[in-house]
Simulated scan of single mutants.
Amino acid sequence: MNPPALSTPHWTALTKEPDGLGESPFWHPQERRLYWVDIPGRRIARVAVDGLQAQGPVEYWPLTQEPGCIAPVQGDEQGGGLVMALRDGIYLAREWGGPLQLLAAAPYDTAKQRFNDGKCDAQGRFWAGSLCEPKDHALGALYMLDGQGLHAMVGGTKDGAHDGVVTANGLAWSPDGRTAYWADTAAHQVRAFDFDAASGQLTHARVFYQANPKPAGWAWGSAAPYGGRPDGAAVDAEGCYWSAQYEGGRLLRISPKGQVLAEVPTPALCPTMPCFGGADLKTLFITTARHGRSEQELAQYPGSGGVWAMRVEVAGVGVNAYRG
């Protein structure tokens, strides 16, 4: 039986200028701003939001490299700022548009790999996965940055490339912090792990959700059905995992037991990542992609590359800040 769908979700556009590939959105509760990145556009964006409406223009911070993911920094005597995973390393910026301090160099060949999806855990450690740009080997790994440096937690030098992924995505934690989720977009798979909060160790890997493979020769508009593949994700207060289905035009709400409870149609065929925000964490934001999409698809989905918002019934889990 198919999961229930919200046939007419009320999405509101927050942006007018589209991104090539929007990713890594997070709601900053103190600033009441939504932050995100445009990977091929090599920029970070932010905008103040009240309800479902942007307040003023979107601010852009141009970079010299592709940003894979970002997270807020916990404020101290030096202020807050952002931590960001760029192609060649993880950097700290104490202020918007300010100088970048290298925290850790990328532990891979930057000609073939780059950082992708990531975020902070509840302990304030920054996690970022990598992807293999040729997309022909599972060389992507999941790294964790703490006060002692950068550590390969899955794949990389820790467990070997056979435990890695082609495209790291969908990182999230359950509300109780005992389960971590991590997706390999190319494999159409989300994995779950037992998570030890004190050490950050991930154990007991298992398949949490497996999407159907992409039909051979599939392209948008073809007759072959295709529901998309797991991209970025967020978790709500009931422990459900919201997964953006790239090329599927939908979000899936998946129970902690791996059951698809609902699907939410999106205003772009390629949603990339959801997050929760607003004062009550009941505003759902999504980033989307238009880079490399066909003219026919963009004509059908003119909102591709935009950032969108809608209200939901169950509150989400808020963003965690980097504490070093």
Rank of each mutant, 00 (worst) to 15 (best):
G277D: 08
A183W: 07
L52M: 07
R94G: 07
P72D: 01
G140K: 09
E66N: 15
R250D: 04
P271N: 05
T64E: 07
G97A: 01
G160A: 02
Q189P: 10
D121N: 02
D136H: 04
V166Q: 05
L82W: 12
G318A: 06
Q300L: 09
G22S: 11
W242T: 00
D76W: 11
F208Q: 07
R178T: 09
Q189L: 13
G292I: 02
K135Q: 08
L103H: 09
L131S: 03
T8W: 08
D117E: 01
E133Q: 09
Q74N: 15
L142Y: 01
P267N: 06
M153R: 09
I254L: 03
D88T: 09
F126G: 00
V37H: 06
D176A: 04
P18S: 10
Q148H: 15
V154C: 03
R42D: 05
V166Y: 15
W220D: 13
P267Q: 04
K119A: 11
A219I: 07
V166D: 04
Y241R: 00
W218Y: 03
E133V: 06
G258L: 05
A105T: 12
P271C: 02
R46V: 08
Q74E: 06
T8V: 15
G81T: 02
K282D: 01
A152F: 06
P72V: 10
H28T: 07
W27V: 06
K158F: 01
C69T: 01
W220C: 13
W61C: 12
P274Q: 10
F276W: 08
A128L: 02
A223M: 11
L269Y: 14
A309V: 02
P40A: 05
P99G: 08
T283Y: 00
Q74C: 06
Q148Y: 13
P57A: 07
G221L: 12
G305F: 02
F115E: 03
G232E: 12
V314D: 11
G292Q: 07
V207L: 12
R178Q: 10
P213M: 14
K112S: 06
L6Q: 13
W36M: 07
L21W: 10
P267E: 01
T288L: 06
G81S: 04
E77M: 06
P274K: 11
G217S: 00
S255Q: 08
P99K: 13
L171N: 03
